Amino acid sequence: MKRIVWLGVGVALGVIAYQKITEARSLASPGGLNRAVASLADSVAHFADQVRAGMGEREAELRRGLGLEA
């Protein structure tokens, strides 16, 4: 049973290492870094949009609770 667990751990580590190596190779190309930065920028923008939407919902909730609706 122990051997099966360690085999599973080894396979999982191998898969993770392979993914990291593949990712590092794709970033080594000139367009790879641009894609990575663009993806990061898109993720940050999406997060900011979600935060703004949540803030708007919470503000409306507070206004309703305090009876300040216009």
Rank of each mutant, 00 (worst) to 15 (best):
R52F: 04
G54I: 04
S39Y: 06
A48D: 14
L62V: 15
T22F: 06
R52S: 13
V9N: 03
A12G: 00
E59S: 12
A28G: 00
S29C: 02
A17M: 11
L66D: 09
S29P: 00
L66N: 11
E23G: 05
D42W: 05
S43Y: 06
A38H: 08
K20E: 11
K20V: 15
V51M: 11
V51W: 07
G54L: 11
T22V: 11
L13F: 11
E23N: 12
L27C: 04
P30N: 05
A48Q: 15
R52P: 00
P30S: 02
F47T: 06
G56E: 14
E23I: 05
S26M: 11
A60C: 01
A53W: 03
S39H: 11
M1E: 15
A28V: 04
A24I: 06
S43K: 15
M55A: 10
G32A: 01
L68F: 08
E61L: 07
P30Y: 10
S29W: 05
I16R: 08
D49E: 14
Q19E: 14
H46T: 14
L68N: 06
L13H: 03
H46L: 12
L40P: 00
R64A: 15
L27S: 01
A53R: 09
V51Y: 10
S26R: 15
A41W: 05
L62E: 03
L68V: 05
V15K: 00
G14A: 02
A70H: 09
V51G: 02
S39A: 11
L62M: 13
G10T: 08
I16Q: 05
K2V: 13
L7R: 04
V44C: 04
Q19W: 10
A38M: 12
T22N: 12
Q19T: 11
V37D: 02
L40W: 06
N34E: 12
L40V: 10
E23Y: 13
E61C: 02
L13P: 03
G10I: 00
A53S: 12
E23T: 10
M55V: 13
G56W: 02
E69Q: 14
K20Q: 14
Q19M: 09
A24Q: 10
V9D: 02
W6N: 15
G14L: 01
L40E: 08
P30F: 09
L68E: 15
I21G: 01
I4Y: 10
R52D: 15
S39F: 06
V37Y: 05
A45N: 09
